[in-house]
């Protein structure tokens, strides 16, 4: 059952200290800015954040990090031209980091959402990121055992939601959203548009409502893109 909220603060209510929170977005595309700002106001701390990056500039995830609410980041690519907030916290030992190859990060959350207890991936065999992992040869190829990453909460940005909570996304802002929506106990979604029941083509729904718990509509936000000229 999906509940639609009128305010971001209501949508993020109840997130406990120490939660694991999956945060959508690839760089700034698909970053749930409003939900993160709501989480900062809500005050939960000691969080483990799972996201592809570790924040850009001082908005979104970087703002949450800067507010001192994050104990650990699990991500594929923390280091970017404008990731100075994370860089400083990491170098001063104030935040833990687990680096996971991007495809394994996605698949580990997919596994959590699909009820898979673990899987063997060929990615990272023979590299430093294989340290401590069980290696197994299957049909002549080497694989590493990877475990699911399950979230207590997922914060996702989508384009449109209907009253059921069915979602569609926009262009490459889709990225981790559909996978994270499946992998959390409570999935909270910010959308640009709420549309009437029956107006989303059932053939084109990307995230079916069963994966969505809370929806809130937010105003479109303009943001610049890294690399834009």
């Amino acid at each position: 059952m999906t509940t639609t909220y009128d305010s971001v603060d209501e949508a993020v209510a109840g997130i406990e200290d120490g939660s694991t929170v999956l945060v959508g977005g690839f760089g700034l595309a698909g970053m749930p800015f409003d939900l993160i700002d709501g989480l900062i106001r809500q005050g939960a701390s000691d969080l483990t954040i799972v996201s592809n990056n570790a924040g850009n500039g001082e908005v979104g995830l970087a703002a949450l990090l800067k507010a001192g609410r994050v104990r650990k980041v699990i991500c594929s690519f923390p280091r970017q031209a404008d990731s100075y907030v994370f860089d400083e916290l990491y170098r001063s030992g104030k935040v833990e980091l687990e680096v996971v190859p991007q495809g394994n990060l996605a698949e580990r959350m997919r596994a959590a959402g699909a009820g898979i207890g673990g899987f063997y991936s060929p990615t990272a065999v023979g590299t430093p990121l294989a340290d401590g992992k069980e290696q197994r040869r299957i049909d002549g190829r080497d694989y590493l055992l990877e475990f699911p990453i399950k979230g207590d909460y997922a914060l996702v940005s989508a384009y449109r939601a209907d009253p059921m909570g069915n979602l569609v996304y926009r262009k490459t802002a889709r990225n981790f959203g559909p996978v994270m929506a499946t992998a959390a106990t409570t999935t909270i979604v910010q959308v640009s548009e709420r549309v009437p029941l029956g107006s989303l083509d059932p053939e084109a729904v990307v995230t079916p409502s069963i994966f969505v718990d809370r929806v809130v509509q937010v105003d479109a936000r303009s943001y610049s893109v890294q690399g834009a000229r």
Partner: peptide
């Protein structure tokens, strides 16, 4: 801003383009 490449540089889409989530992409 919703359409970038893996380097986070804004790009365009060609006719016949398809979007998909990260687990499918990998």
């Amino acid at each position: 801003p919703d359409l970038t490449n893996a380097g986070k540089v804004p790009v365009t889409e060609l006719p016949g383009a398809a979007y998909f989530h990260h687990a499918d992409s990998f």
